[in-house]
Amino acid sequence: MTQELARPATTPAEVTRDTNNLYEVWGDTVDSRHLVLAILVSSVVSLGTYALALWILAGILDSAQMAKAYAMLFGILGCLAGGTISALLFKPKRDVIEHAADPAFREQVVNDLLKEYGSLGRLEETSPEVIAELRDLGLYELFRDAELREQTAPSAADAGVDASLQPSGGRS
């Protein structure tokens, strides 16, 4: 869903950016070399913490079972420590854009909604609370105009096509 917003991506400084080893793994982009190093760091830190904790606790606690259970707690803290070190060493491969929706873009969204739902419904059918909310958000006119367009168009499907051909059509 975010791909269509990819256009402004050229704005951040891309001088030293190395994009040769980028892959999508488990839903997000990583640099494969960084991934290998991060996994190594995290494995060493987490297992190291666990082994150390087990060794020390086995000397202190009487019950070997309790020592093992607490060692696992330290092992999990070790995982978090490993993750934190990896986060400090390797920066995210993401561009985050602070972005406010522009009016033309909003009309496209309303058109998409019309296509999915078949009809935008009527504002008169909603409660005053919903109308007040729409007014507060500055969306009332958007939906009212779209509703009027839908009513003048012969059918819902045609309205979707029609409006997408003229992105700013019907807006006063």
């Binding site: 990583v30 960084h34 987490s46 999990i76 995982c79 490993g82 995210p92």
Partner: peptide, 24 residues
């Protein structure tokens, strides 16, 4: 989360977790 926590760090944390729990 998006600016500071890399996906590499998230993945490596889970790998660490799998190793510790498996070994444990």
């Amino acid at each position: 989360v998006f600016r500071k926590i890399s996906h590499e760090a998230v993945i490596s944390t889970f790998i660490g977790l799998a190793l510790v729990v498996g070994i444990w």
